[in-house]
Amino acid sequence: MSKLASSAFLTDRKIVFLLATFCCFLWGSSYPAIKGGYALFSIAPHDIPSKLVFAGWRFVLAGLALLAYAGISGKLKGGVPGRVLARFALLGLSQTTLQYAIFYVGLAYATGTKSSIMNATGTFFSVLLAHYIYHNDRLTYPKIVGCLVGFLGVMVVNLGSGAGGLLAWDFTLLGEGFVVLAAFILAAASIYGKRVSQGVDPFVMTGYQLVFGGSALLAIGYALGGKIDNFTVASASLLAYLVLLSALSISIWSLLLKYNRVSTITAFNFLVPVFGVALSAVFLNEPIFKLSNGIALVLVSLGIWLVTKAPRNS
């Protein structure tokens, strides 16, 4: 497929919708999958080094799989210049190592349901950052209102139902705080990834950045005494699913970002909390019908609809 044909295909609204929705489904499923992996590999909630090892193997294996595909398909023919590898390494250390180290810690201290909703803040961070970086992706009134409504939804999901009642604030720095911080880092790294991807194949870029980022996670995790064991058919299968999830979702998302506006693509992230909440309820038996969850999902979805309602040429 020629570059012109690829551009036309990947900017078609129906194709963008299908591919972006598929990525969001995969990312939504990662919340119960990761928490399930902690249980299957017997990783305790406070065992952060082992969580980093778990994440490291997931990303290294996903990156190696993508590089193998790139090699077989001829995408690696001629090699990769050193300066480009340096950019891949920077992307991997930010988008994979730093972002996921913080995200994995946050997920250990927050429910999969709340984490999936709060991670949608990355959409609004992307919209705000794109305004200052791309001249054709400026903030508009609907985008500003949408960001405010979306952040309101994030606040609502942190309303508890314990001793303090519905208006009790249920937020911790290591839990919900780290999930939001990870979302900001991912938004910033994704914009940098869009810039890097303009001159390279997104599958090659994703493969290298996952290997670089995952290797750093492994080095840090093992240095701190982390480990994963208790390999069974179930635990190995779950790890294999997470590897496939990472390879597919990040590669497809990078392709979409390469040929479309940041705000257009990241707006689809509203589907992540929808899938995340539903799948966390199914696989983790987490409560899905809490009033705060329902209100938050509506507000987050409304916020992102407002962000994307403006015409593409605005």
Score class of each variant (00 low, 15 high):
S249W: 01
G146W: 07
A130C: 11
Y132T: 12
V84L: 11
A108Y: 09
K77M: 00
L302E: 04
L256R: 04
I185D: 03
S292G: 04
Q209W: 04
R195G: 08
I250F: 14
L52K: 09
L239D: 03
A310V: 15
W253L: 13
S237T: 13
S197V: 15
S280M: 11
N136H: 13
L166D: 03
Y104N: 10
R138V: 07
Y192S: 10
A55I: 03
G177I: 08
L299F: 12
L245W: 01
V145I: 15
S246F: 01
S301P: 00
S249F: 01
C23K: 00
L98P: 01
W169M: 08
G303N: 11
L166K: 02
L242Q: 08
T232I: 10
A110F: 04
G207P: 07
L107G: 03
L26V: 13
V105N: 09
T96G: 00
T206P: 02
G82V: 01
L152H: 00
A33C: 09
D170R: 11
L302H: 02
S2P: 10
Y100N: 11
K77Y: 01
Y104W: 06
A267Y: 13
V233E: 10
G56S: 05
G199Q: 14
L98C: 06
F54L: 05
K35Q: 13
R83P: 00
V149G: 04
L85C: 03
F41T: 02
L302R: 01
Y31M: 04
L90S: 02
V84F: 00
G165M: 06
L64P: 00
N285S: 15
Y208K: 10
V149C: 05
T140C: 09
L210Q: 15
G74I: 02
A267Q: 15
S197Q: 12
F275E: 05
K14W: 12
S42Q: 14
L218V: 03
F103C: 02
A183S: 15
S161V: 05
Y109D: 08
G150H: 06
F184W: 11
F151M: 06
A130M: 11
C24K: 01
L93Y: 08
L4K: 12
K194G: 11
A216T: 09
G175F: 06
L40W: 02
V243G: 01
V80P: 01
G150R: 05
G193K: 11
T264N: 08
S215F: 07
F9T: 08
C23I: 07
F231K: 08
T140N: 07
F103R: 02
Q99T: 07
A33I: 03
L52M: 14
A130Q: 09
L217E: 13
S2N: 15
G74R: 09
S73R: 14
A219F: 10
S42K: 14
A101S: 14
L299N: 05
C23A: 05
L181V: 13
G37L: 09
V200S: 15
M118Q: 11
H46W: 01
F151V: 02
A247S: 11
A65C: 05
T111H: 08
N158M: 14
T140L: 11
A70W: 06
K51V: 00
A86N: 00
L217Y: 07
L61Y: 01
C24T: 06
Q95S: 12
G56T: 03
Q99E: 07
I15V: 15
L19P: 00
A310R: 09
L218S: 05
N293Q: 06
K3S: 14
G112V: 10
G214I: 03
G63V: 00
K194S: 12
F151L: 12
G37F: 09
V262T: 13
N119C: 05
